[in-house]
Write a protein that binds this DNA or RNA. Structure first.
Length: 389
DNA sequence: TCTGGGGTCCTAGGACCC
DNA sequence: TCTGGGGTCCTAGGACCC
């Protein structure tokens, strides 16, 4: 145990653990014969590997794909061909037609995700879930220097999953997240505050978690490309340009300042389902197909709510038109719902408020203002001050 | 054949209440 | 005739993240 238990004054040490090319790595553990080959994940069921009579698998390639999807992951070999996650699959097919294509298999990834997070928990008890393939862990109180802790984390994850991860250890979440990316894949990076000018400031501003494409473009207009160039600006100037909240956050982030605590428990805010149609649909001409898709979405949201034990008081729809403009409408009910019929009724009222003369590319249904179905009070960290888990 | 799906958080205006 | 200010809820859109 370290001497100072006060979180405000003790030296915090936060680890960010990020699985390497997670979905692709899970797939490689199922199909080791694909190791070393360019491979991407992003297809649908029809691209599942077929078992041949001799016991080997026949795989689809990107050249066989047609549709509107994007890549979910690409192996490092595929990335070398210029494709990356988020890229439209048809575009990737032009760049790497011979890359192996696999459909997404969330059940498999969730299984590996549990193994990964359980392995981290054997090293550090307090963790924050960020997504399926990354967590923060509070390692302030662990024995040993940061490099030793990083090695323990990586070894535990590899032993439990057979997969590699990258680890960053730093005084706060912002710097930990940034540093886990500096030695990827299968590496570790330790960052202390004194390293910020030399190791953080040369990086592009976009690498800060919270600076997205829009903010990066606005910064570039001001001649700010790197984190160091951002750090050199007056807080007052950033506040004037970006508003009080975001401007002062930008200034602090650029200096590596971040006081956020780990969030070790959270309740969902909304549950939604959406689908992009293979071909744009028209509200009148494709009424039957649209109605069927709408009902199916309501049923899936209802099933999700019931499985997770929630009801919701606000029901909404999301539409994306053929020109990619997106609109949402929602309505708050007097009493919460979780059944498909109740959701469909409320969502249908929302649909009536939208001009449907354009063709639709996407339809979504969402339920928010969630409450626990069993009436239990939502778990609140503030009421306890610690995490009983 | 450009642009998935499931989320969170923030902002801003209007309604409504005191 | 003129016209407060704070608080909360609702709604729509947008940025961002994995």
């Amino acid at each position: 145990m370290r001497p100072d238990p006060n979180p405000m004054t003790a030296a915090r040490r936060i680890a960010h653990i990020d699985m390497d090319a997670f979905f692709a790595s899970c797939e490689l553990s199922q199909y080791p014969e694909l190791r070393g080959l360019p491979m991407v994940v992003g297809g649908r069921g029809e691209h599942a590997p077929r078992l041949r009579a001799d016991g080997t698998h026949a795989f689809s390639t990107l050249a066989e794909y047609s549709g509107r999807g994007v890549l979910t992951t690409a192996t490092y070999e595929a990335r070398a061909l210029g494709v990356h996650s988020g890229m439209p699959t048809m575009k990737a097919a032009r760049l790497a037609p011979h890359a192996v294509l696999l459909p997404v298999n969330f059940e498999l990834y969730r299984r590996y995700s549990r193994l990964f997070k359980d392995a981290v928990r054997t090293v550090a008890a307090r963790i924050e879930d960020v997504g399926i393939d990354e967590v923060y862990a509070d390692v302030s109180e662990l024995d040993g220097d940061a490099a030793t802790v990083a090695t323990r984390l990586r070894r535990a994850v590899h032993e439990a999953t057979g997969l590699t991860c990258s680890v960053g250890i730093a005084p706060n979440k912002l710097l930990a997240k940034l540093s886990s990316d500096l030695n990827k894949p299968d590496g570790a990076t330790i960052l202390v505050e004194a390293d910020v000018p030399t190791r953080v400031w040369p990086l592009p501003a976009r690498r800060i978690n919270g600076i997205g494409p829009k903010a990066a473009a606005r910064l570039a207009e001001l001649g700010i490309e790197t984190i160091g160039e951002l750090a050199a600006r007056d807080a007052a100037e950033l506040v004037a340009r970006f508003g009080r909240a975001y401007g002062s956050w930008l200034h602090q982030a650029a200096h590596g300042v971040d006081a956020r605590e780990l969030v070790t428990h959270s309740e969902p805010v909304s549950i939604s389902r959406e689908t992009t149609f293979e071909h744009d649909l028209h509200a009148v001409r494709d009424r039957a197909a649209l109605g069927a898709a709408f009902s199916a979405l309501c049923e899936r949201v209802a099933a999700d709510l019931q499985r997770k034990g929630y009801v919701g008081r606000t029901v909404g729809v999301k539409l994306r038109f053929d020109d990619f403009t997106t609109v949402t409408r929602d309505t708050t009910l007097a009493a919460p719902v979780a059944d498909a019929a109740g959701i469909r009724r409320a969502a249908g009222q929302c649909l009536k408020r939208i001009d449907l003369s354009r063709r639709l590319r996407l339809l979504g249904v969402r339920v928010s203002k969630l409450e626990r179905a069993d009436g239990a009070a939502p778990w609140r960290q503030a009421e306890f001050g610690f995490d009983p888990e």
